[in-house]
């Protein structure tokens, strides 16, 4: 099966590979996996607490070209959006942008899961932080 040019581009020149400080309260980390194919994807966002805008996003994915391209594209899509806008990102956008074939759609689903997991981690961290601040 041939990869589309866009997949190859992201695969050969992945954007935003790396990691952010997991302990930083501004950082949300999403770690998801697809056991059957062994893909593991870590996606992190750094949110400006004042504006709610995602200022940075990093990923590291162990998996096939489509999984790497999906998460690479996801980090690009995330930057500059608010957390709520980011929650609205659907895997179909990734499928269309990368022209993923049906057998690789699960890679885009994984990327969407990773985004949601990262946001949920960020919210949990800050929800908990806010509560502690109130009780203190």
């Amino acid at each position: 099966m041939a990869y589309s040019d866009k997949v190859l581009d992201h695969y050969n020149h992945p954007r935003n590979v790396g990691s952010l400080d997991k302990q930083d309260p501004q950082v949300g980390t999403g770690l998801v996996g697809a056991p059957e194919c062994g893909d593991v994807m870590k996606l992190q966002i750094k949110v400006n607490p004042a504006t709610g805008i995602i200022e940075d996003a990093k990923f590291k994915t162990f998996g096939c070209g489509s999984a790497i391209a999906s998460s690479s594209l996801a980090t690009e899509m995330l930057k500059g959006r608010t957390v709520d806008e980011a929650l609205a990102i659907k895997n179909t956008e990734i499928v269309n942008e990368l022209s993923l074939p049906p057998v690789k759609i699960h890679c885009s689903v994984l990327a969407e899961d990773a985004i949601k997991a990262a946001i949920s981690d960020y919210k949990t961290k800050n929800g908990v932080a806010a509560e502690t601040a109130q009780t203190a």
């Binding site: 996996g33 697809a34 593991v40």
Partner: peptide
């Protein structure tokens, strides 16, 4: 199985 079947600590 789907991605959620692997517990987070294992991931």
């Amino acid at each position: 199985q789907r991605s959620k079947d692997v517990p987070p600590e294992l991931l």
